[in-house]
């Protein structure tokens, strides 16, 4: 069974800055990393392979330098890495991106499971996982926090909700996206790094995938970004300090001056 992990190279946002005039990310000097949520997807893929066997293929769309991210995936234990790179892919929104990834996955054989992070930390849409699933007409489950059972036929997993989780059983092939609770990603080993240096990164272009150019990249993207801006910081709150009796009195007084009707609340 082929286990595919889709990864995205993103700027390391732990030290990101925004140009206040253009409102765009300042990319110079910012290190590129694998989207952190995708690291959990890679780790889970490796664990599944270690448990039930199979092959892990790392897949990414992007400019040639994304090969570095794919090498990292190999250093962690992925068996194969495929880079989708072509000028025609540039400027893709989540629709065109998922269409392209889906096209690439269609070229692969014996697909059992496709894993992704729940979202990318640069775009934060969370749409590509479900998007690929729709393009491939495959089922998907997002936000998985635990895989309880997995075989080549079916998966039993827990899907994180705001107030609990759903326990789901589904047939393979399927697309899943994972949250950070699912595991603790391993660090690359020396042997892995050495293998990654030598590994061949397979490159596919638009022609090979066989999707018409008007359906991919900027041409195939229905979304248009009109403006990016930093939302104004919400105004600072007020903290009342002291004994509860005093602070409650202060709060009531404040609400009153603010013109808020205190209804049945009694002042003492």
């Amino acid at each position: 069974m082929n286990i595919v992990v889709c990864i995205k190279q993103v700027p390391d946002t732990t030290n990101i800055r925004i140009n206040p005039e253009t409102n765009t990310l300042i990319r110079e000097g910012v290190e590129s990393i694998i989207n952190p949520f995708d690291m959990y997807a890679i780790e889970e893929a490796l664990r599944i392979k270690e448990k039930i066997g199979g092959k892990v293929t790392a897949l990414s769309m992007g400019p040639p330098q994304v090969a570095e991210a794919l090498r990292t995936a190999i250093s962690l234990g992925a068996d194969e890495a495929i880079l989708l790179t072509d000028r025609a892919f540039a400027g893709a929104d989540t629709w065109a991106t998922s269409l392209t990834l889906a096209g690439a996955i269609r070229k692969m054989e014996n697909i059992g499971l496709i894993l992704m992070g729940k979202q990318a930390i640069d775009g934060d849409t969370g749409q590509v996982g479900p998007g690929v699933a729709e393009h491939l007409r495959l089922p998907h489950i997002t936000d998985i926090r635990k895989i309880e059972e997995i075989s080549e036929k079916e998966i039993v997993c827990e899907r994180l909700l705001e107030d609990g989780y759903l326990r789901l059983k589904a047939q393979l092939p399927i697309i899943i996206t994972v949250v950070k609770e699912i595991n603790e990603p391993r660090l690359p080993s020396l042997r892995g790094k050495m293998a990654a240096k030598k590994a061949e990164i397979i490159t596919w272009n638009a022609e090979y995938i066989g999707i018409p150019v008007e359906e991919i990249g900027l041409n195939g993207s229905p979304t248009q970004v009109l403006k990016i801006f930093t939302p104004p910081k919400p105004g600072g709150g007020k903290v009342f300090e002291g004994e509860p009796a005093d602070t409650v009195a202060q709060l009531l007084a404040e609400l009153k001056t603010g013109g808020i009707q205190l209804g049945a609340a009694k002042e003492e």
């Binding site: 391993r186 660090l187 690359p188 080993s189 020396l190 042997r191």
Partner: peptide, 9 residues
């Protein structure tokens, strides 16, 4: 962790 990273090797 050190073992998994091959550092003893």
């Amino acid at each position: 962790v050190l073992g998994d990273a091959d550092l003893f090797r």
